[in-house]
Simulated assay, not measured.
Amino acid sequence: MLDACAELVDEVGYEGLTTTLLAERAEVAIGSVYQFFPDKRAIVQALTLRTLESYLQRLDERFASDDLSDWWDGVDAAIDEYITMHRTVPGFRTLHFGDVVDLHLLDEQRDNNGVIADQLARLLTERFGLDGVPDFRFHLEVAVEAADALIKLAFRRRPEGDERVQVEARALVREYLHRQLDARTEAAQPG
């Protein structure tokens, strides 16, 4: 049902999605849809959570490789995976991480990009030992918001993503994080 939901969201958008359409596409009885999901919001929330898990799994794999030599490589990997998912994962281009439906779809207490920033902070801290860097989580959330907005712009401009906008998104995030974090990272290092 989630695969059918992803396809439909790309075809008709969130507003056009109905449980009836979903049941038809998934080739299940409408009662089966309601057995698992009370409404279309719950279906989209489940799809969004699955997408978040996939994104984090992709990043875990990238972070586990030896190709990342510093924290910026991890940020770059996060941007790469976000762009790749826009291009390849059904439903992602429309839903992203659920903000089209509800800014608090992933977590009632934090907005969706805040959840993403928390997960990125965890991964970056584990991989690059960034604990103790002052305001790290805050600056990462600002960077996530900026990157998200610019990547959405790139895909509104061109179906495959406007490369010029993507380059600018990377440059903006890189410059911002370097300016905010490099001095703090050095200050937090022992010795």
Score class of each variant (00 low, 15 high):
129 G>S: 09
93 R>H: 07
158 R>W: 06
150 L>D: 11
118 D>C: 12
138 F>I: 10
125 T>V: 03
85 M>I: 09
96 H>A: 12
132 G>C: 07
137 R>M: 01
153 L>P: 01
157 R>Q: 14
63 F>L: 11
129 G>C: 03
96 H>S: 13
61 E>H: 10
91 G>R: 00
149 A>P: 03
94 T>H: 12
122 R>Q: 12
103 L>T: 06
136 F>V: 05
148 D>S: 13
140 L>S: 02
139 H>W: 11
71 W>M: 03
135 D>H: 11
96 H>T: 06
88 T>W: 02
69 S>C: 04
142 V>F: 05
81 E>T: 15
124 L>P: 12
130 L>H: 08
147 A>F: 09
85 M>D: 14
132 G>F: 03
119 Q>D: 07
147 A>P: 03
91 G>I: 03
124 L>F: 03
138 F>K: 06
81 E>Q: 15
72 W>E: 09
146 A>R: 09
108 E>S: 14
88 T>L: 06
115 V>Y: 10
130 L>C: 08
84 T>G: 14
60 D>P: 02
101 V>N: 11
83 I>Q: 13
142 V>S: 02
161 G>V: 02
154 A>H: 12
84 T>E: 15
135 D>A: 11
121 A>E: 11
127 R>L: 05
151 I>F: 13
120 L>F: 05
157 R>F: 01
84 T>S: 15
112 N>D: 07
121 A>I: 01
144 V>T: 10
90 P>T: 00
64 A>H: 03
117 A>D: 04
126 E>K: 08
107 D>I: 00
107 D>G: 04
114 G>N: 09
139 H>Q: 06
140 L>A: 02
140 L>H: 01
71 W>N: 00
119 Q>H: 11
122 R>G: 00
80 D>H: 13
153 L>K: 08
66 D>L: 09
110 R>F: 13
70 D>K: 10
73 D>P: 04
60 D>W: 06
120 L>Q: 07
140 L>G: 02
125 T>S: 04
143 A>D: 06
75 V>L: 12
128 F>L: 04
69 S>Q: 11
76 D>N: 11
65 S>I: 03
70 D>R: 14
